[in-house]
Simulated scan of single mutants.
Amino acid sequence: MNEHPAALRVGAWSSLAALLASGGTLVCCALPALLVTLGAGAALSSLVAAVPQLVWLSEHKAAVFGFAAAMLAAAGALQWRNHRAPCPVDPALRDACLRTRTWSRWLYLASVLLFLTGALFAFALPWWTVRG
């Protein structure tokens, strides 16, 4: 019975890791595109001067998105595996188990939304503007 809370913790941590990885896609691609679209190129150049690693992330956006997709796939598999796992009988532990499961699901959905937003700015919009 002790393995189920540990499995839920792993699911929650994997969702958090997926959230951070998909947040990286926003930093690499969506944030610079948004700043340029808003006419804040000077702010972008200041940001790149302060954090030069952003250039590396932008140059390697395929790897960043690949890593984020792998993390999302792993987190999704763990979410699916644990979505019907039994919770402990003790009311306090059961409530904690259900709360962790709910938070983990919301974190995963937020991660997917961040990933899709980053992919929109990194791949779809540049392709659309070139074709249009």
Results as ranks from 00 to 15, higher is better:
Val51Glu: 05
Ser45Leu: 08
Leu47Asp: 04
Gly41Tyr: 09
Gly39Ile: 12
Val55Ala: 07
Gly24Leu: 13
Ala42Arg: 14
Leu47Cys: 04
Leu31Gly: 07
Leu38Cys: 13
Cys28Trp: 10
Leu44Cys: 03
Pro32Tyr: 06
Ala49Asn: 06
Ala40Met: 15
Gly24Tyr: 09
Leu38Tyr: 12
Ala42Tyr: 11
Thr25Tyr: 03
Gly41Trp: 05
Gly23His: 10
Ala49Ile: 02
Ala40Trp: 15
Leu35Arg: 04
Thr25His: 01
Leu44Ala: 03
Thr25Pro: 09
Val55Gln: 07
Ser22Glu: 08
Val27Gly: 01
Gly41Ile: 02
Leu38Gly: 14
Leu31Cys: 09
Cys28Ile: 04
Leu31Trp: 14
Val51Ala: 10
Leu54Pro: 01
Val27Cys: 06
Ala40Ile: 07
Cys28Asn: 02
Gly39Leu: 10
Leu44Val: 03
Gly41Pro: 02
Gln53Thr: 06
Leu47Tyr: 05
Cys29Pro: 01
Cys28Gly: 14
Gly41His: 06
Pro32Trp: 02
Ala30Tyr: 11
Ala42Glu: 15
Thr37Val: 10
Leu26Gln: 07
Cys28Phe: 12
Leu54Ser: 01
Leu31Pro: 01
Ala33Thr: 05
Ala43Cys: 08
Val51Met: 05
Ala33Phe: 10
Leu31Phe: 13
Ala50Cys: 08
Leu57Ala: 06
Gly24Val: 02
Trp56His: 07
Leu44Ile: 04
Val48Asn: 01
Ala30Cys: 04
Leu31Ser: 09
Leu34Lys: 13
Val36Thr: 15
Ala42Val: 12
Leu35Asp: 07
Val55Ser: 04
Ala30Met: 08
Ala40Gln: 15
Pro52Phe: 00
Leu47Ile: 08
Leu44Trp: 08
Ser22Trp: 03
Leu35Trp: 13
Gly41Asn: 11
Thr37Asp: 15
Pro52Cys: 00
Leu38Phe: 14
Val36Asp: 15
Leu47Lys: 04
Ala42Leu: 12
Trp56Ser: 05
Gly41Cys: 05
Val48Pro: 00
Thr37Ile: 10
Val48Thr: 10
Ala49Asp: 11
Val51Gly: 00
Leu26Lys: 05
Ala30Thr: 00
Gly39Arg: 10
Trp56Asp: 05
Val48Phe: 02
Ala30His: 10
Val55Thr: 13
Leu57Lys: 00
Trp56Cys: 00
Leu38Asn: 09
Ala50Asp: 08
Val51His: 09
Leu57Val: 00
Ala40Gly: 10
Ser22Ile: 05
Cys29Gln: 07
Pro52Tyr: 02
Cys28Glu: 06
Leu54Glu: 01
Leu35Val: 11
Gly41Gln: 11
Gly39His: 11
Ser58Thr: 08
Leu44Lys: 03
Gly41Arg: 11
Gly41Val: 06
Ala33Asp: 10
Val36Tyr: 14
Ser45Asp: 14
Trp56Lys: 02
Leu54Arg: 00
Val36Glu: 15
Cys29Leu: 03
Gln53Pro: 00
Leu47Gln: 06
Cys28Val: 07
Thr25Ile: 00
Cys28Thr: 07
Leu57Ile: 01
Pro32Met: 07
Thr25Arg: 00
Ala42His: 14
Leu26Val: 05
Leu26Cys: 04
Ser58Gly: 14
Leu26Asp: 03
Ala43Val: 14
Val27Asn: 02
Ala42Phe: 13
Val27Met: 11
Pro32Phe: 08
Leu35Gly: 08
Val36Leu: 15
Val48Arg: 07
